[in-house]
Amino acid sequence: MDETGKELVLALYDYQEKSPREVTMKKGDILTLLNSTNKDWWKVEVNDRQGFVPAAYVKKL
């Protein structure tokens, strides 16, 4: 969790967005987890953008 109590995830792999609903991340990025109710796609925030990334590409910290 960060200082505001939000849950964080670590990008395990690079991911290039394939639609406007997704976000690009690089391996090693720390992202804010917004929603993990879907087992396949998690909603995150990175670089002031919100979108989805494959759940298998990130790990909760």
Rank of each mutant, 00 (worst) to 15 (best):
M1D: 13
M1K: 14
M1H: 14
M1A: 13
M1E: 13
M1Y: 13
D2E: 13
D2M: 14
E3C: 15
E3N: 14
E3Q: 13
T4R: 12
T4A: 13
T4Q: 12
T4G: 14
T4E: 12
T4L: 13
T4H: 13
T4K: 14
T4F: 12
T4N: 13
T4Y: 13
G5V: 15
G5Y: 12
G5H: 14
G5P: 15
G5I: 13
G5W: 11
G5L: 13
K6Y: 14
K6M: 09
K6I: 10
K6S: 09
K6G: 09
K6D: 09
K6F: 13
E7R: 11
E7H: 10
E7I: 15
E7W: 11
E7S: 11
L8I: 08
L8H: 09
L8Q: 09
L8N: 05
L8A: 06
L8K: 11
L8D: 04
L8V: 08
L8R: 10
L8M: 11
V9Q: 00
V9P: 00
V9L: 11
V9D: 00
V9I: 07
V9S: 02
V9W: 07
V9H: 03
V9C: 14
L10G: 02
L10W: 07
L10E: 11
L10P: 00
L10V: 15
L10H: 04
L10R: 09
A11L: 02
A11F: 01
A11E: 01
A11V: 10
A11Y: 01
A11W: 02
L12G: 02
L12A: 04
L12S: 03
L12P: 00
Y13G: 05
Y13L: 10
Y13N: 08
Y13P: 00
Y13F: 11
Y13E: 10
Y13Q: 12
D14V: 02
D14T: 05
D14C: 05
D14P: 05
Y15M: 01
Y15Q: 00
Y15S: 01
Y15P: 00
Y15H: 04
Y15F: 07
Y15G: 00
Y15A: 00
Y15N: 00
Q16V: 14
Q16I: 15
Q16T: 14
Q16S: 11
Q16E: 14
Q16D: 14
Q16M: 13
Q16G: 07
Q16N: 14
E17Q: 12
E17G: 15
E17F: 05
E17H: 07
K18M: 11
K18N: 10
K18R: 13
K18E: 07
K18F: 05
K18Y: 05
S19I: 04
S19A: 08
S19V: 04
S19Q: 08
S19Y: 06
S19W: 05
S19D: 10
P20G: 08
P20H: 09
P20A: 11
P20R: 09
P20N: 09
P20L: 09
P20S: 12
P20F: 08
R21D: 12
R21Q: 12
R21F: 13
R21S: 13
R21K: 11
R21I: 12
R21L: 13
E22F: 06
E22I: 04
E22G: 12
E22Q: 11
E22V: 04
E22A: 05
E22W: 03
V23M: 10
V23A: 05
V23S: 02
V23W: 04
V23N: 03
V23Q: 03
T24G: 09
T24E: 04
T24W: 04
M25L: 07
M25F: 09
M25R: 00
M25N: 00
M25A: 02
M25K: 00
K26N: 08
K26L: 08
K26F: 10
K26E: 06
K26M: 09
K27L: 05
K27R: 10
K27S: 07
K27T: 07
K27P: 03
K27F: 05
K27N: 05
G28I: 01
G28A: 03
G28D: 05
G28M: 03
D29W: 12
D29N: 06
D29M: 15
D29Y: 05
D29S: 07
D29P: 00
D29C: 07
D29K: 03
D29A: 07
I30L: 08
I30K: 04
I30W: 05
I30M: 06
I30A: 02
I30V: 11
I30C: 06
I30S: 03
I30R: 05
I30E: 03
L31R: 01
L31V: 06
L31K: 00
L31E: 00
L31H: 03
T32P: 15
T32N: 07
T32L: 15
T32F: 12
T32Y: 11
T32M: 11
T32R: 13
L33C: 07
L33T: 01
L33E: 00
L34W: 05
L34M: 06
L34E: 02
L34N: 02
N35Y: 06
N35P: 03
N35T: 07
N35E: 15
S36D: 15
S36Q: 09
S36F: 06
S36Y: 07
S36P: 05
T37W: 08
T37D: 15
T37M: 10
T37N: 12
N38P: 04
N38T: 06
N38V: 05
N38F: 07
N38K: 06
N38G: 09
K39F: 07
K39R: 11
K39I: 09
K39A: 12
K39V: 10
K39Y: 07
D40V: 13
D40I: 14
D40W: 15
D40R: 11
D40A: 10
D40S: 10
D40Y: 15
W41K: 02
W41R: 03
W41V: 02
W41N: 01
W41A: 02
W42A: 04
W42G: 00
W42Q: 01
W42I: 05
W42C: 03
W42V: 07
W42H: 03
W42S: 02
W42N: 02
K43S: 08
K43V: 14
K43N: 06
K43C: 14
K43Y: 15
V44W: 00
V44K: 00
V44M: 02
V44I: 07
V44Y: 00
V44T: 01
E45C: 12
E45K: 09
E45T: 07
E45D: 06
E45H: 06
E45I: 09
E45Y: 06
E45M: 11
E45G: 08
V46P: 00
V46E: 04
V46S: 15
V46C: 11
V46A: 15
V46H: 15
N47A: 13
N47S: 10
N47K: 12
N47I: 11
N47E: 13
N47L: 13
N47T: 09
D48W: 07
D48E: 10
D48Q: 12
D48M: 10
D48K: 10
D48H: 12
D48C: 12
D48P: 05
D48N: 13
D48T: 09
R49Q: 07
R49S: 06
R49I: 07
R49E: 05
R49D: 04
R49T: 06
Q50F: 07
Q50R: 11
Q50D: 06
Q50Y: 06
Q50G: 06
Q50N: 07
Q50M: 10
Q50I: 13
G51H: 02
G51Y: 04
G51D: 01
G51S: 01
G51E: 02
G51P: 00
G51L: 04
F52Q: 03
F52H: 05
F52N: 04
F52T: 03
V53M: 01
V53R: 00
V53L: 02
V53E: 00
V53N: 00
V53T: 01
V53I: 08
V53W: 00
P54M: 02
P54T: 01
P54C: 04
P54Y: 02
A55R: 11
A55H: 03
A55L: 02
A55P: 06
A55Q: 05
A56Y: 09
A56V: 09
A56S: 13
A56I: 09
A56G: 11
A56W: 09
A56D: 11
A56P: 07
Y57D: 04
Y57E: 03
Y57H: 08
Y57N: 06
Y57F: 12
V58F: 05
V58S: 01
V58K: 00
V58Y: 01
V58L: 15
K59H: 10
K59R: 12
K59I: 14
K59N: 06
K59G: 08
K59V: 15
K59E: 14
K60F: 08
K60C: 11
K60P: 10
K60D: 05
K60S: 08
K60M: 11
K60H: 08
K60I: 12
K60G: 06
L61W: 07
L61E: 04
L61Q: 05
L61K: 04
L61M: 10
L61T: 06
L61N: 03
